[in-house]
């Protein structure tokens, strides 16, 4: 891993305006705004994997999509490999897409049911005019072999519905990898898979990361999977990063109360261990109605009066960043 920064995200915001019934629009007189990503900054070094961990509703999925411009950011800058991605438009952006890709959570839904697997994987190459027909096919068959989708030429002609969940996700990864991108966003790539398949996919992703010199943004709700693949981890809550640090620091000593809660909610398959659990009050509030002050204070077991009034900034605590008044 070099110390060169590959991706820098600076004050990124993404707001959605919700459709409001016309009666409400007249009486309340304003649109309802969802702040899915609310002023998020981070960097990823070349060859590094940054994990973004949070509950559903934390905005982590929107963040992943916004970083590669599948969703238009409301404001902020994204600089990837020295190029300002937020400046690109139309055709230039479309051509640039060969350099970064995304792996979605649901492998079945991300494959066109009317396309054969071979065509699905070769399509990115066709779109970007890479290689001849023969070269494309050879590369795909080679990748299928490598991904254990064998016999490869048989898989090449199958439809997605004839594949198992794990095989489908390997096809999705193959498609994401086929143009030799430098950066991949993985949005909960293992969440819908069986336990035993989960580890296979994680292992595959780690292997190709080194072989193809990839940089990952790994989005998950599962800290346990994040441990295996991430170098650093950012914890997201209601559109904001509340803590970001090296994996070791997060696992050894989580600082933010929310990180602590996430850590203690992971079920440990060891009946010999009895842990004191840290359980928050209630559930994640709606992003249309973000609490004032620290957005976590409504659920925080340690909240004080300052937490209700003032929003904490990310501050440096021994080389890591935490946004909490108590730390």
């Amino acid at each position: 891993m070099s110390s060169e920064v590959f991706l820098r995200v600076d004050r990124l915001k993404k707001e959605f305006s919700l459709k409001v019934a016309w009666l409400e629009a007249i009486f309340k007189g304003k649109k309802r705004i969802v702040k899915a990503v609310d002023d998020v900054s981070f960097y990823i070094k070349k060859g590094e994997t940054l994990g973004i961990v949070g509950e559903s509703g934390s905005g982590k999925t929107t963040l992943g999509r916004t970083v590669i411009r599948l969703v238009e950011p409301t404001s902020g800058k994204i600089i990837m490999d020295g190029m300002e991605l937020t400046q690109l438009k139309g055709e230039t952006l479309r051509r640039e897409r060969r350099n970064f890709s995304i792996i979605f959570q649901d492998p079945m839904a991300s494959l066109n049911p009317y396309m054969r697997v071979g065509k699905i994987v070769s399509h990115p190459l066709e779109i970007h005019n890479i290689g001849t027909k023969q070269e494309r096919k050879e590369k795909i068959l080679w990748l299928f072999e490598k991904f254990n989708l064998t016999p490869a030429d048989e898989f090449y002609n199958r439809f997605p519905k004839h594949l198992s969940g794990g095989q489908r996700q390997r096809v999705v990864i193959a498609r994401a990898l086929i143009t030799n991108p430098k950066f991949i966003v993985a949005d909960e790539p293992t969440a819908m898979l069986d336990v035993s398949v989960r580890s296979q996919i994680l292992k595959l992703m780690i292997e190709i990361k080194y072989e193809f010199k990839l940089t990952y943004l790994f989005i998950t709700h599962d800290l346990a999977s994040a441990k295996y693949i991430c170098d650093r981890i950012g914890v997201m809550y209601l559109g904001k990063i509340v803590e970001i640090a090296n994996k070791e620091d997060i696992f050894k000593e989580p600082l933010h109360p929310y990180t602590k809660i996430l850590m203690s909610s992971i079920p440990i398959p060891d009946p010999n261990i009895k842990r004191e659990k840290l359980i928050p009050k209630g559930e994640i509030p709606s992003a249309t109605n973000i609490p004032t002050g620290c957005r976590f204070h409504t659920r925080c077991p340690f909240a004080k009066s300052i937490c209700r009034e003032k929003e904490p900034e990310l501050k440096d605590v021994g080389g890591r960043l935490v946004a909490c008044h108590i730390v």
Binding site: L70, F104, H123, R175
Partner: peptide, 11 residues
């Protein structure tokens, strides 16, 4: 999602 995937590969 497969349409979004197509978009993401630059179709």
């Amino acid at each position: 999602l497969y349409v979004e995937s197509a978009y993401s590969i630059g179709a």
